[in-house]
């Protein structure tokens, strides 16, 4: 007992060192465990996100497939039926009434044009036949012909565009359609600029208009259906995007798309 009391300071020093080491070890183990739990949670979230992307991709793919089927049905059956009807009216005797004949022909011609437009819209023929650059030009031409908007395209990435997969091409096409639609309906502007270029192994696509812009672009709650759709399509093709407002244009979105 005497010895223990005499060496109390040694014991105190040892206990101080020991408890210090114990506390530090305990904290390190705790921090390590917490980080592991966080990592596992992040992996689960990541795989859930990937799963959602895959579901979204499948939805878009089946949607496109359905559009294609309806488009071709419209073109082949309704279009063909209308053409036959037109020929029947053509072959009607003059006595049936010239006025009625030409009126019927006019209506049928208009329905044929509308059907073709709907059919092409459902399944973009230019994209299928000539590829994305031509399809974008085609979209721009339609808008330019309206006379209300002027679309300028600066494409510096023809080679990269050719390397894109079919689903990515379709996504870009649909995104541009949606953006054009937004500009026409809501922007109040009259100019649209599209710039496409390559940066590293990514394709950059910038879309701007000189309209009134959009509020709360980074707030997903404030997004309309159109912008939410654009965001989903970009997510599915693993693209990132940023919003900015350069000098003369009040709305700008720049998408960065991985080239396969």
């Amino acid at each position: 007992m005497q010895e223990i009391t005499e060496n109390i300071y040694v014991l105190v020093t040892l206990v101080m060192g020991g408890t210090f080491l114990l506390a530090v070890s305990f904290l390190l183990i705790h921090a390590n465990n917490q980080n592991k739990i966080l990592k596992q949670q992040q992996v689960i979230q990541q795989s859930e996100l990937q799963h959602q992307k895959e579901i979204m991709g499948a939805i878009y793919a089946s949607q496109e497939e359905e559009r294609k089927r309806i488009g071709s049905d419209l073109h082949d059956s309704v279009g063909a039926a209308l053409s036959s009807l037109r020929m029947v009216i053509e072959s009607m005797p003059e006595s049936a009434g010239t006025g009625l004949r030409s009126q019927c022909k006019e209506i049928i011609d208009r329905i044929i044009v509308d059907t073709r437009n709907i059919s092409h819209n459902l399944s973009p023929v230019t994209l299928n036949l000539y590829g994305l650059p031509e399809a974008i030009e085609d979209l721009a031409d339609v808008i330019n012909n309206g006379g209300q908007f002027q679309v300028n395209i600066e494409n510096q990435a023809d080679e990269s565009l050719a390397k894109l997969s079919r689903s990515t091409e379709l996504s870009i096409y649909r995104i541009l359609e949606e953006l054009f639609n937004n500009t026409i309906k809501h922007s109040g502007g009259n100019q649209i600029a599209i710039r496409i270029w390559e940066e590293g192994n990514r394709l950059q696509l910038s879309y701007s208009d000189n309209g009134k812009g959009l509020k709360d672009l980074n707030n997903s709650k404030g997004m309309g259906m159109g912008m939410a759709n654009i965001k989903n399509r970009l997510d599915v093709i693993n693209a990132t995007y940023t919003f900015s407002a350069p000098n003369e244009f009040r709305f700008n979105i720049t998408c960065s798309i991985p080239i396969q």
Binding site: I8, L11, V12, F20, A23
Partner: peptide, 14 residues
Amino acid sequence: ILIYFSAALSQFAF
């Protein structure tokens, strides 16, 4: 707090 008070506990007591 944990490291300091654990390590110093025996010193405080004795």
